[in-house]
Design a protein around this nucleic acid. Structure first.
Length: 669
DNA sequence: TAATAGGTCTTTTTT
DNA sequence: AGACCTATTA
């Protein structure tokens, strides 16, 4: 008889687990908390991500199989960072943990069970722009011509439907609550929405909301799927829980119903996604849904000076709806934040640019400097000024790399190859060919659809001959390209497919329709080839890019001549979770921040104030708050702007030394 | 009849 | 930067 020893499957820690060196007492309690529901209220800069990372590592260290851990984060980038950090802490294969946004996890799960919902597993994901144009098509189909003009645009309808889904509110209720001007149209809307959902299923398309909606349906309508998923994930951890909405909250409750090992982390003071249906009652009422849950608090702030924290704390105290909390500063004393009054946007840009150069002279890395603002266009003049002075910067707001027209154009070809039922992509790419518009594209699609292999039919000679001479000439280019693409569809890598498209007839279209912008767009497309090269197959490539949250091209670009150091220009929303040595907050003027659209309700105003709180708490040492006091409106009227109430309310004492900021006077020489 | 070119208006924030 | 509307062209 021979003894054979099976090696232990338990992970072996490679690193020294002296946790108390890495974590404070509050954090340690969270990391080593026992199983079951755990609620962590974590103030800004309290090491929330750090703690959550250690918690995951600790679980793996204790023997939990990484593939049975589900970690939900707010962006996919955050997920990647945390997974990498966990991998650095445990020897075990941390890559196997399920981490990502709700939408990307929903995508992964849905690929597995697509058939249950009546979807092909090669479904394509559409962004809100595509969803809006499909909605327009549905309006045209579902509504009599004479009434079409009375129906709001597709983008508005998509927004309404999206809110209904994310807040789990029936259409009529939402309309009477938030869109009173559409009262009486609820039934029309409902029939349009029903058609919209049907069309997406037929075309094998899924929008952002469907990723949540179908995921939830899998859990509620299919017992076998529910049990499989509930058993599969032993531990579920949710970051930024204050920004989850109702359907996300329900999904998590369903997913964790069996093991009930659910740890949620968040800060109600940083809830800034109400416009997208986020429901911070999820976090406030967590204790009601899980009466046995343990409560933890992280209240020691490692990020900012006491002066910055003082300003942030005093500001957020003006909000009525919140968990009372005391955020304590750990860092030594620093300078008071600066408040400045700038004459106009150009002076604001001058000030920021000049101050950035001074900071750089003092030895502060440009990577440690950020400019934060409420709305993308608040930074336009600054972008011009930074460019003029040769200060390198990245913009992390505005249109995303993958949302740009030329990128979406090229991707449309790949999407159609991946899912030949994707009519939306077909219509988009068909219009690249001279003489083809909506009507002709529709006609070609219908001709091809009846054929056994629609993709080949598009490229067939038969179809070509059915077209009028003029269109036939240009469509011959399309047919040739398609023949080539179809031939290599199964073997080709994503980057070679992208390359085939951009080297083909699309290049002519690009030149013709973008003119002087052609060069930079062509460069973007080259970068797209590089980016695509990271993916093994189209499946993964297409699956990931629509869900990629990063805004700027620079995050996407591999290689290229990116400067080593650059200032970050970002919307406050995009700045969540990040920190810099010095932060500039622009446009703290009445009507701009808080924005006019938000201030008519208390909820709106409080969310704006939380936004201001998030902005202020991004700064480690220096915080500059700028009030633009004169401005020219679009119709060229000069207006004088009061300072933001968020500044005004902080200066409630006649004694200036009591103000949480120092007022700077600008002098021009 | 349908495509396209040119002018105007819009926009908070994002998965 | 792009969508929508209108006028012009094929």
């Amino acid at each position: 008889m021979k003894k054979y020893t099976l090696k232990s499957q338990k992970p072996q820690p490679t690193k020294d687990w002296a946790l108390s060196d890495q974590l404070n007492e509050e954090q340690l309690a969270v990391v080593t908390a026992s199983s079951g529901p755990n609620l962590v209220i974590a103030g800004a800069g309290s090491g929330k991500t750090h703690t959550l990372t250690y918690r995951v590592a600790w679980l793996i260290h204790k023997g939990v199989d990484p593939s049975k851990i589900l970690l939900l984060t707010f962006t996919n980038k955050a997920a990647r960072n945390m997974t990498d950090r966990v991998a650095g802490l445990v020897s075990h294969d941390a890559k196997r943990i399920w981490s990502g946004t709700y939408h990307s996890i929903g995508n992964r799960i849905l690929r597995r069970y697509a058939a249950k919902i009546g979807l092909p597993s090669n479904f394509n994901i559409i962004d809100s722009e595509d969803a809006a144009s499909l909605m327009d098509l549905c309006v045209a189909e579902a509504v009599d011509d004479i009434y079409v003009k009375r129906i709001p645009r597709g983008s508005v309808l998509v927004k309404i439907l999206s809110l209904c889904i994310n807040t789990q509110t029936p259409v009529p209720d939402l309309i009477s609550h938030k869109f009173e001007h559409f009262k009486g149209m609820a039934d029309t809307f409902r029939s349009i929405f029903a058609l919209f959902q049907t069309r997406k299923l037929e075309m094998g398309l899924v929008d952002y909301d469907d990723l949540l909606l179908h995921w939830k349906r899998l859990l509620t309508d299919f017992v076998d799927v529910r049990e499989a998923l509930q058993s599969e994930f032993e531990h579920i951890l949710v970051d930024e829980y204050q920004d989850t909405n109702l359907i996300q909250g329900e999904i998590i409750d369903l997913m964790s119903a069996k093991h009930r090992n659910l740890m949620v982390v968040g800060d109600d003071s940083q809830a800034i996604y109400g416009f997208r249906g986020a429901e911070y009652r999820n976090i406030l009422e967590f204790g009601l849904r899980y009466p046995e849950c343990r409560h933890f608090r992280l209240e020691l702030n490692y990020r900012s000076t006491p002066q910055i924290l003082e300003l942030a704390n005093r500001s957020i105290a003006f909000n009525q709806n919140q968990y009372p909390k005391t955020l304590r500063a750990h860092r030594p004393s620093g300078e008071k934040p600066a408040k400045l009054r700038v004459r106009d946007v150009y002076q604001q840009a001058d000030f920021v640019a000049q101050r950035i150069l001074e900071l750089a002279d003092e030895g502060i890395s440009l990577d440690e400097i950020a400019v934060l603002y409420r709305a993308h266009h608040h930074a336009m003049e600054l972008q011009v000024e930074l460019t003029r002075r040769g200060i390198p910067y990245v913009v992390r707001s505005g249109i995303r790399f993958f949302e740009q027209a030329h990128i979406k154009d090229v991707l449309a070809y790949l999407r159609l190859l991946h899912n030949p039922k994707d009519e939306l992509s077909f219509i988009r790419l068909a219009k690249h060919f001279q003489g083809v518009g909506n009507k002709r594209a529709d006609q070609i699609w219908k001709l091809a659809l009846n054929k056994p292999d629609p993709l080949r039919a598009i490229a067939s000679d038969e179809l070509l001959h059915a077209l009028p001479t003029r269109v036939r000439r240009s469509w011959a280019h399309a047919a040739a390209l398609f023949k080539e693409l179809i031939g290599s569809r199964l073997t080709a890598t994503p980057d070679s497919l992208v390359e085939k498209v951009i080297k083909g007839p699309y290049d002519d279209y690009l030149q013709k329709s973008f003119g002087d912008d052609y060069k930079s767009r062509a460069q973007d497309l080259e970068q797209l080839v590089n980016f695509a090269a990271q993916f093994e197959d189209i499946d993964r490539f297409l699956g990931e890019i629509t869900l990629l949250s990063s805004m700027s091209g620079q995050d996407i670009l591999v290689g290229g001549e990116v400067p080593d150091e650059k200032v970050t220009l970002t919307s406050i929303h995009q700045a969540k979770g990040l920190e810099w040595h010095a932060c500039f907050v622009l446009w703290l003027s009445d009507g701009h921040f808080p924005s006019t659209n938000s201030v008519d309700t208390l909820e709106g105003e409080e969310e704006e104030r939380r936004l201001f709180y998030v902005a202020a708490t991004r700064a480690k040492e220096e915080l500059y708050l700028s009030h633009v006091f004169t401005h020219r409106t679009r119709d060229n009227r000069a207006v004088v702007l009061r300072e933001s109430i968020f500044l005004e309310e902080l200066a409630d004492s006649p004694d200036e030394s009591q103000h949480p900021f120092e007022t700077w006077i600008l002098e021009e020489v």
